[in-house]
Nucleic acid binder design. Structure first.
Lengths: 349, 349
DNA sequence: TGCCAATCTGGGAGCGCTCCCACGGGAGCG
DNA sequence: CGCTCCCGTGGGAGCGCTCCCAGATTGGCA
């Protein structure tokens, strides 16, 4: 016989971890009081609170998350869902920054961060199950496509959700986005301010809202300068380096004398840069070049690329904050946040 | 009155989610049987199993994780712990690849992946608490420093743990590492094979085991070629671009005629590349250059850098697999895995 | 034919917590 | 001075599951 049971009714908990009950016994109060103290309820006398806090410290008590989740029907965890396809394209730093921001914001809460990468349709389905089982209190969705079924599913399930980026002009779910239009506009304006007159642009895939926004910004700036309307200055890329190359080649063919290019991503700008070089043009002397994202690619290019920076980490923080609010106040209020971008001027323009 | 309670004793569960009990009622069996089916126990008759499976499908039953965790004293979750400092230095793709690998491996289990970024000492302490509370079944530790207290804490707590990389020669905890020595050796050998004779190296901070390994590999190759022993060919960097620049300048000063450099990271190689250029030297004609990591920086450099690739994603997968095994078989057996690297030859050497 | 073992099964007893009800006693009121 | 009212409190009930123990049923063997 190892340990009698009579004397120590509270038991020892599995793994020897202290339980609420043990804290209560030690502090000489009831379970309810300890629970109130732990959860910050104001309806506790100073005396009782002190006793409980002392007992907690002595025992090194940490609430059992599973028990709490079961009893309170919440998990104290949020999921960050990232479609695998998006983590390619040299966009890695972007995701890491988002994660960093989310993690920072969550650090003060004791919410846990669940990372879910979606690669296959099977995993996608699995995720649906998880969500249906309400294993998280809320979901952060990164780079959703227009026709992604996930947001609607989440909505139907009434799972608090915050998107990173919008799916279209009139996004109704909560989202946090960067001011892509403004960023693109300021890039084009910078080029125009340099005295360049034949300013071309390389777009992303136009079935992505973010790509359309960046094109819009460019168009706005061109129109304001009275240089709008020439669609031959617009070439379409797909956010890849090869796409940037092809677009640049097309542009040079149509406009051998162009003197500036705004690419909707650094990776595409990098592709464009190579083509420009191969064609014997100097950057920025002959052709000024601006990218978007302010990624490592921009910093390490030769010459280093001027680029539009988006406050990625802050976007992550904001997403987490908005989600937390949405979880807290159960009144499905939606929030739309657009954070401003800024131009980082380097040597390419 | 919405719904009577008498008839449907099993209730509706909160949020309308079906419970084990409801499945049991529907299938006309007991709770125990349903549990056995769900958990894949062999001690169930084919008939009962079929009935239960049908009921599960009809009801769309998904086990409640919290309840399971509470009853079985396990969480079905593992934590991936990443020290913030390490996510800088252009090493982002590395972490994303690790995450990708871990996530892939976990997708088939129904383990959840908890991401924990550690920035401040406070967060570090908090993590200790989490671990003490056994909120995860196991821990994956990325890039641990020699004097990090976390591994020992984990060991004391008897939490299954797998390290990414070793802390020293004789690491006793389970780990998955890349063959840094071999990779560095093959890089140096490649340089020598090119006919280069004055082969220098830029090291990482030598208080990191990984940096020492890469230096070792270089030294081995030099010794085998009968060119070893010249410590003036070794310059110390810190894995940053600026460090790479400084080291390169120092090397050029000592050896104006050097014809090859092996840098222990792509970022340092990139720094070295700029200095080499500024000094009027051509790469690879005058000086051949090799980096380590095969990161985006290497691919986008001009000229693209030859670099040592480590199978990062596979390392992630392996870590997860080893951890799962360790959790499964509770006999604290340690496993040490070293994955081979390979040289990706591009234009710089 | 009878008996024992092997197999399958139902359901009780918890896991550690939150929710909530009911109780006690002090303050404030008429 | 007695009556509410309310704050602080203890503890029952129950969240949905796993674990495990008996009971029921079957088959095999003497």
């Amino acid at each position: 016989m190892v340990t009698g049971k009579g004397a120590m009714t509270a038991g020892e908990g599995r793994g020897g971890r202290p339980t609420l009950e043990m804290v209560a016994a030690r502090a000489g109060v009831g379970r309810g009081t300890v629970s109130r103290v732990v959860n910050g309820s104001p309806h506790v006398s100073a005396q009782a609170r002190a006793a409980v806090e002392a007992a907690i410290a002595e025992l090194g008590y940490v609430p059992n998350r599973a028990a709490r989740a079961l009893a309170a029907d919440r998990t104290d965890a949020v999921a960050l869902v990232i479609p695998e396809s998006e983590t390619r394209l040299g966009a890695e730093p972007y995701f890491l920054d988002i994660v960093r921001g989310v993690s920072t914001e969550l650090a003060d809460t004791d919410m846990q961060l669940l990372l879910t990468l979606i690669r296959t349709p099977r995993e996608r389905q699995r995720l649906g199950q998880h969500l249906a089982a309400r294993r998280v209190d809320g979901v952060l969705l990164v780079s959703v496509h227009e026709n992604d079924p996930l947001p609607s599913l989440l909505e139907r399930l009434r799972v608090p959700t915050v998107l990173n980026g919008r799916r279209s002009e009139r996004e109704w779910m909560s989202y946090v986005d960067a001011d892509n239009v403004g960023g693109a506009r300021s890039a084009a304006e910078h080029l125009l301010g340099l005295g360049r007159r034949t300013v071309a642009t390389i777009t992303g895939p136009l079935d992505m809202y973010v790509a359309r926004c960046r094109l819009d910004g460019y168009t706005q700036a061109m129109n304001s300068a009275g240089l709008g309307g020439d669609t031959s200055l617009v070439a379409h890329g797909d956010f890849t380096e090869e796409g940037g190359r092809a677009a640049m080649r097309a542009l040079l063919e149509r406009h051998p004398g162009l003197d500036a290019v705004f690419a909707a991503s650094d990776v595409m700008a990098s592709g464009a840069l190579h083509v420009l070089r191969q064609s014997g043009r100097r950057v920025p002397e002959d052709v000024a070049l601006i990218g978007f994202d302010d990624s490592a690619v921009a910093r390490h290019a030769d010459p280093p690329l001027t680029s539009v920076r988006q406050p990625t980490e802050e976007m992550g923080r904001t997403m987490a904050r908005v989600l937390l609010e949405e979880i807290e106040s159960r009144n499905g209020i939606r929030r739309h946040v657009v954070l401003s971008t800024d131009l980082v001027v380097r040597e390419s323009a």
